[in-house]
């Protein structure tokens, strides 16, 4: 099992619904976020290109945060999902410094917090909150090991890119372009 997410940058309008859904579902403290919208404009005027991306933890197959964690609080759970156990986390910040995507933050309660792919919902057979609410249906979550899953099919059909693969993390967010 290999959970992954595909994000259709052609369909994303940058409405931030995924951000708010995550904050509500996971009780994210005010002022923090586990997922966020990035908007990039590139090119030379007047030939500009706009891209919207809904970003979150990349649940790397080679996760530097798990490697650097001194207590084992950061660990890889079923389907390759990277999780933090709050009761084992000492809040040293090593994982935050080790993440090239800056996807983690120190929770006001002390431990380090991040996207969980809504594993509590996934275990019940549901999609993550961000996927459920997306009004343009641009997020696809599923198992890459299953060739018939929606995410596997999207990656097969479409061109995609992954971010900062040069950092050696083998990220599992696929941005359809």
């Amino acid at each position: 099992m290999r959970y992954a997410m595909a994000i259709d940058t052609k369909k994303c309008v940058g409405c931030s619904d995924c951000v708010v859904a995550c904050q509500l579902e996971n009780n994210v403290p005010i002022g923090y976020c586990r997922d966020w919208i990035v908007e990039t404009t590139s090119g030379t005027y007047p030939n500009l290109e706009l891209e919207n991306r809904s970003e979150r933890c990349h649940h790397c197959a080679n996760a530097p945060c798990v490697r650097c964690c001194p207590t084992g609080a950061s660990h890889i759970a079923e389907g390759g999902v990277v999780l933090v156990t709050p009761d084992e986390c000492i809040g040293c910040g090593a994982c935050i410094a080790s993440c090239p995507y800056d996807a983690r933050y120190p929770h006001p309660d002390g431990y380090v917090d991040k996207c969980t792919f809504c594993i509590h919902k996934v275990r019940k057979g549901e999609d993550p909150a961000c996927v459920q609410v997306c009004p343009t249906n641009c997020l696809y979550f599923g198992d890459l090991d299953d060739p018939n899953s929606e995410v596997s099919r999207k990656i097969k059909e479409r061109k995609y890119k992954r971010l900062k693969t040069e950092a050696g993390t083998d990220p599992q967010l696929y941005f359809l372009i």
Partner: peptide
């Protein structure tokens, strides 16, 4: 000039706009 402007909606304490987890 070929440029890329990045706008991010993220503003996490000690992480944005620049990392400052260790002092």
């Amino acid at each position: 000039m070929e440029e890329e402007i990045i706008i991010s909606g993220r503003m996490n304490y000690k992480v944005d706009p620049g990392l400052h987890i260790w002092g």
